[in-house]
Structures are given as C-alpha cells and as structure tokens.
C-alpha cells in the first residue's frame, strides 16, 4: 500500500503544471524515503528530476510498504489536479501492484471530499545516472528574475550565452535581427535573502543553451522564490527550484557546443 497525504495541493499542482508541456508521460518512483521522478523530453535534450522527501513536513502522512512505480500521463494528472482547491489536502493512494492511482481531495472545512481514479501506464523509460559533482559555478537569484531574463532574451534569438565570472553573471543573445545582453551583478547585501544574487565561483564558465528549454523550466517559478543555476564548462546546466517542506525540482539542459 502506498499513501501520501500532502498538506497543500497547490504544491503538486505547480509541479505538474511546470512539467506537463515538456514531459508528458512520467514514472513516479515511490519508496519509503519519498517520491522521485526522472524524465527526459522527447528530443532527449532536457531532463527533470523531482524529489519529495517523505520525512519533510509537507507530508502529513506517508506510507509506502514496497517500492512501486506509478506511470502517469501528466496532462491527465494536471486535469485531475485542477479539480482540487488550492487549500485542499490531497492524498495519493495506490495498491502494491497498482493499475490505478487514486486522488482524494479534502477541503479545509471538511465539508467536501472528492475522489478521482486514473489508470496507470506502463512507461518504458531508462533512468540515467546523474553524478553528484561539484560545479565550477553556482548562481543563486530570485526565480522571477531568471524568468524575466529568459523571457526577455527569447524575443531576439534561440540561444543564450551564460557567462559566469567573479563580478556576476552575463546573459547574452545574438539573433538575426538584433542582440541583447543582461548583466547581473553579485548582490548579497540586500535585506531579504530571496532577493539576493550570489555567485559561487571556482572557475569561470561561458556556455550556450537553448532558450526554448530554459523558458519552459521557468514555468516552475511559482514553486520557489529563488532558483539556482549550476554550471561547469561543456556539461549540462542544472536549474534547481527548492520546494519548501518537500525537496526540490531540478532541470538539466545539455549545452550547445561549438561545431
């Protein structure tokens, strides 16, 4: 038996909304330690990795007697989650050898209980081993700032060059009709931590990435006030949104490499 009771349905709604356009079918791997999801987009350029820890406060109850994989169509899941109120408590439930995933939405005042079942799918996806490495550069910034940068620069071109150096980070785009550049200076003196821009630098990095994917990742902006970008030359960028009281959502994007 698997049963996970999440205090805020809005968290799961935001996660699925941010994934469903790039990652349409995905396996939720459930174990006693929590729920993980790893999936590649259809072109195998981007990868997402979600981790929701069972021992964090976001789960009121969590039970998973044996490891199970729940193959779900995320577009369908998003439709089901739209039936939940933002303040509803949501329970996910499945048997040990499941064909069905059950969603139970309890309203805050206890007057409304909704139950939806969806059929599970057999999804043949290969898990990739993501090495736990140290990156040359980690930039932390307000998540809405990163969203704005991606949105602004995507008006002019398809790829952004991210240039991390000791003063800060530069984002540049060069298209056929024009070019643009946004310079963010390190700023760790502002009062609120979530408004700070910080750059941890071991080595400078200059790398290009497809804006289409970065813009898609920023659909997760409402999950977190901050986002971190981890870069090493000639390796995928990691865009991480912490999820309070649950864990994190990470996106990996393969770089564009000079031919």
């Amino acid at each position: 038996m698997f049963e996970a009771k999440m205090l805020q349905s809005s968290v799961l709604k935001k996660i699925i909304e941010s994934l469903k356009d790039l990652f349409s079918d995905a396996n939720f791997d459930c174990s006693s330690s929590g729920i993980t999801l790893q999936d590649m987009d259809s072109s195998h350029v981007a990868l997402c990795y979600l981790k929701l820890r069972s021992d964090e406060e976001g789960f009121e109850d969590y039970r998973c007697d044996r490891n199970i994989t729940l193959g779900v169509n995320l577009v369908l899941m998003s439709k089901i989650l739209k039936c939940a109120g933002n303040d509803d408590v949501i329970t996910l439930r499945a048997e040990d050898e499941p064909n069905i995933l059950t969603f139970i939405f309890d309203s805050k005042n206890g007057e409304r209980v909704s139950k939806y079942d969806i059929k599970l799918m057999e999804i043949d996806s290969e898990l990739l081993g993501i090495p736990d490495t140290e990156y040359s550069c980690v930039v932390k910034m307000p998540s809405h700032e990163f969203q704005r940068i991606c949105s602004n620069l995507s008006q002019l071109g398809d790829s952004v060059t991210v240039d991390c150096h000791k003063e800060g980070v530069d984002f540049k785009v060069a298209g056929e009709q024009g070019s643009g550049a946004i310079k963010l200076k390190q700023n760790t003196t502002v009062d609120k931590e979530e408004d700070q821009v910080s750059v941890e630098l071991n080595e400078a990095v200059t790398q290009s990435f497809a804006l289409k994917f970065l813009c898609a990742f920023t659909k997760a902006t409402s999950l977190s006030d901050t986002v971190s970008l981890s870069l090493t030359q000639d390796t995928p960028i990691v865009v991480e949104y912490p999820i309070a009281q649950h864990g994190y959502l990470r996106f990996y994007l393969a770089p564009k490499i000079e031919e």
């Binding site: 195998h44 898990l127 081993g129 790829s159 564009k256 490499i257 000079e258 031919e259």
Partner: peptide, 14 residues
C-alpha cells in the same frame, strides 16, 4: 554555429 548536445551524452544509462 552551435550544435545542440544530447543529455544522454553526459549521463550514462543505469
């Protein structure tokens, strides 16, 4: 021109 890399080039299949 830049060539788009593939994520499977960087992370091995388990």
């Amino acid at each position: 021109t830049n060539k788009q890399g593939n994520i499977t080039e960087f992370f091995r299949k388990q």
